[in-house]
């Protein structure tokens, strides 16, 4: 099955035929399902478990032009010990930085088990030549990145040049070597849920290890319905090809409530097989402190002020 599916990318006509032959997504129905799952009430022990799981799934991210080596080191310290006063708080999954800061992050996280992810491929727009993109990827991998978060060429996708998008992902995957590849679809620019499903399949067929909603630079980013559709895609892809792909919503997940809704979505769409940092990540920066605050509230019954949580 895997080999015959790979053949669909042999030309733009076959790839287009395949992607447009996927079942459609009814927007109203998908929104309704996501909204319903958003009403799940996760309390007490379930909430405590969900908070710890969410912390373990966080890709702690800083992607600003103003990022400095010092800022990255501080964030790495936070990734390993999110709450310095409470050693029972688990580590986050990874930190996510720009390629030129990978070396600092790798150094700061040595031996901690926290992974280093780097965006690449002319993030966030992806507007450059394939050469530049593969070179940038190779640069980040050489600096020690465990994971690469690439962006797809949305312009080519929207123009119907699916093969171009496909081949680019294949090339970046090759440049990754042993590093894991997360493919950012930038769903906020794809405009329809049908496109989100097609782009998900395209990224998976091309060899992506994870599919990721957004760069965080475009709104809307990681909405519940978009994450739902991507979860359905990885579920169907596993059933069709036998290969399991992870999902990473990123952008706009700021509160514990947002994160718990995501976990409910995973639980009731693809099940516990994806409820681990190996298969589901939350790309976020401010989320972590809210998780810590809610965690402390569960343990002590009181909210501490924001000054009791570090800003890194």
């Amino acid at each position: 099955m895997t080999t015959s599916l790979a053949d669909v990318a042999s030309s733009n006509v076959t790839l287009r035929t395949f992607l447009h032959g996927l079942p459609g997504v009814d927007r109203v129905g998908a929104d309704q399902r996501a909204a319903m799952l958003g009403t799940r009430s996760i309390k007490t022990t379930a909430k405590a478990e969900a908070i710890d799981l969410a912390i373990r799934m966080v890709d702690l991210t800083t992607l600003e032009g103003a990022d400095t080596p010092g800022k990255v080191r501080a964030m790495c310290a936070k990734a390993v010990h999110p709450d310095p006063g409470d050693p029972s708080v688990p580590k986050v999954a990874a930190v996510c930085v720009y390629p030129d800061l990978v070396a600092q992050a790798v150094d700061a996280l040595k031996g901690s088990g926290v992974k280093v992810a780097s965006v690449a491929t002319s993030f966030p727009s992806g507007r450059s030549s394939l050469d530049v993109k593969t070179t940038e990827t190779a640069f980040a991998v050489a600096a020690g990145a465990d994971e690469i978060d690439m962006v797809i060429d949305r312009g080519a996708f929207l123009a119907g040049d699916y093969v171009k998008v496909f081949e680019e992902i294949v090339a970046i995957k090759a440049a990754c070597g042993a590093a894991h590849l997360k493919v950012i679809l930038e769903t906020g620019e794809l405009s329809t849920y049908d496109n989100v499903r097609r782009a998900s399949w395209l990224a998976m067929l091309a060899g992506g290890d994870f599919i990721k909603t957004s760069t965080g630079k475009v709104q809307p980013a990681a909405t519940l319905p978009v994450t739902l559709i991507m979860l359905e895609a990885v579920r169907d892809f596993l059933a069709t090809t036998g290969r399991k792909v992870g999902v990473k919503p990123a952008g706009g997940i700021r509160t514990t409530k947002d994160a718990v809704k995501m976990l409910v979505l995973v639980n009731e769409t693809v099940g516990e097989g994806w409820l681990s940092p190996d298969w589901f990540r939350l790309g976020a920066s401010t989320l972590l402190n809210d998780l810590l605050m809610q965690r402390q509230k569960m343990a002590t019954g009181r909210y501490a002020g924001p000054d009791y949580f570090t800003l890194d």
Partner: peptide, 11 residues
Amino acid sequence: EDAALDQAVEG
């Protein structure tokens, strides 16, 4: 056969 399958299941 051309229905949006996931939403049809919900329906």
